[in-house]
């Protein structure tokens, strides 16, 4: 895009204005902030799944590592959230790179399967090491972060909503800049044909690892935010279904584009809030959508629309 500034300024204004406007409507604010959080996750998933062509089903596990680590540092070691958040994010992102190493060896289905194994092991570990994670019961009453402006105050309600909206916005903007850069085009080259990319001088190993690191940063940065926003974490919040649902938002909207995950998240993220108490119905709907997207619309909504708008040869 030649002149991105109006779009950037407009979306930024929306991200600041929306939480402020909804300050008096807690339920609506909850839905909107939840959507911003999912937007961050979807942007990170899109970098790997859409641009690099690697589907990491261990995505939510990275989020979980970061969330548990941050909550542990805050509630047990007495750290400030503002110190624990970046530390937990960096640690979890490095773990994400380690867990991505199989992608250097395994192709296609075999990597997806290995990431499913990793995700399952992580969920089992969150349950099994109950002394650190409180097992299946989960950790509740997670305190909100301290206010960076008022000494002794806490950042809750609209303040926290604003923070998450800004982080979500920054995540999408950064992924957009990355996708348009030379690095983003190298990722696409790796996706399309790794051997050819290698002969063209693309460092495939570096590209894959860098994509894993950046994508894991997204997954990890959202974990602590999710913990303080919801106030509760349990192994269920970071299981295979969570990973699959993030993938669904990306694939439903359209992988490998910036608008696609935006569309997918805006449609799917609010859905669970309207089905409160019927979360199994949500599972069924999401499952059916996964099947529909895979069978009928591999390009997602975005791919379908841009197919329609492309001028056709007579």
């Amino acid at each position: 895009m030649s002149r991105p500034w109006p779009l950037l300024a407009g979306s930024l204004a929306l991200c600041i204005g929306l939480p402020l406007a909804l300050a008096g409507a807690p339920f609506a604010a909850y839905i909107v902030t939840g959507a911003f959080l999912q937007l961050l996750f979807a942007a990170g998933m899109n970098l790997l799944s859409g641009y690099t062509g690697i589907t990491p089903l261990s995505f939510a596990g990275i989020t979980g590592i970061s969330a548990y680590l941050c909550v542990g540092l805050v509630m047990r070691a007495g750290w400030s959230f503002w110190a624990a958040w970046p530390v937990a994010t960096l640690v979890a992102a490095f773990v994400g790179v380690l867990l991505g190493l199989p992608a250097l060896r395994l192709r296609g289905f075999y990597f997806v399967l290995s990431s499913l194994v990793v995700q399952t092991v992580l969920t089992l570990a969150f349950t099994a090491f109950a002394s650190l994670t409180n097992g299946d019961t989960g950790i509740s009453q997670i305190p909100p972060p301290s206010s960076p402006f008022v000494a002794g105050g806490t950042l809750g309600g609209t303040g926290l909503d604003l923070l998450i909206a800004l982080v979500g916005w920054a995540g999408v903007v950064i992924s957009w800049r990355l996708a348009g850069s030379g690095f983003g085009r190298r990722l696409v080259a790796v996706r399309e044909d790794p051997e050819l990319a290698e002969t063209l001088g693309v460092d495939v190993v570096f590209c894959k690892l860098a994509a894993f690191f950046i994508s894991s940063l997204y997954a990890a940065a959202g974990g602590p935010l999710m913990a303080v926003f919801v106030g509760f974490i349990s192994p269920r919040s970071f299981d295979l279904l969570a990973s699959l649902n993030i993938w669904l938002m990306v694939a439903f909207g359209g992988q490998g584009s910036i608008a696609g995950p935006l569309i997918g998240t805006l449609i799917l993220a609010p859905l669970p809030s309207f089905l409160l108490g019927y979360y199994q119905v949500k599972d069924i709907i999401y499952g059916l959508l996964i099947i529909t997207v895979t069978v009928a619309m591999p390009g997602g909504i975005h791919g379908w629309i841009s197919n329609r708008m492309r001028p056709r040869l007579p």
Binding site: L241, I284, G287
Partner: peptide
């Protein structure tokens, strides 16, 4: 794999 993971979710919910 994705289709059957979706099926899993549908069956589990049902």
């Amino acid at each position: 794999f994705m289709v059957t993971l979706g099926l899993t979710q549908v069956f589990a919910g049902l």
